[in-house]
Amino acid sequence: MRTPISILLLSAAAFATEPVKPVAKDNKPPCCRVALDLGKPTDQSLYLLDSIWTSDVGRQIKLGALRGRPQIVALFFTHCEYACPILVGELKAIETKLPAGVLRNVDFLLVSIDSKRDTPAELAVFREKRELLRDRWTLLRGGADDVRELAALLGVNYAEDSRGQFAHTNLITLLNADGEIAFQHAGLKQDPALLVAAIEKATSGAQR
């Protein structure tokens, strides 16, 4: 096991709980901020996708609207009885572990794979229930083909079973500010130290 000392130090810093800056209630989710004019996405950017997504606040966007800040991304669905509550819990745990200075420069993105049931209203209920901060978390739904495409890019496999539950790969992806996959964290109950370190690295170059 060759873990660079710098990463150990970084993650040690990450786990020190710093007070999280309180967020005003009327703040807009990351998807609703004014899009930056950053030119063409790079050849490996997920922001090359043209698909249109709807957020829990009803706003329609292309994923490129999130450009300029690193995004911590996971696919989920609100009716999930198995892993998603844990997956979202892990994301929230990461949120509490990040130092305030890092947290200011990163967003969380949850995209539903349940195109049939996860309406914007369902997503809004989920946001309330799981207390996902408005100005840090984006919740999106999209058409079945667009979800399939995004999942394919992230390397997430999923299939619906006869009870309307989806078996899916548990993968947390860090996109850098340009929308390129910077790091992927696979599986539940894994030590997030490397992911946290990758987030800190990605946010150091954040453009807004």
């Binding site: 999930c80 998603c84 399939r148 394919a152 496999n157 999923y158 299939a159 989806f166 078996a167 790969t169």
Partner: peptide, 17 residues
Amino acid sequence: TSDFNSAMVTGDARGDT
């Protein structure tokens, strides 16, 4: 196939059933 990535071989949601 359109849903080639629906095959769940590893990393299943239910912890590798």
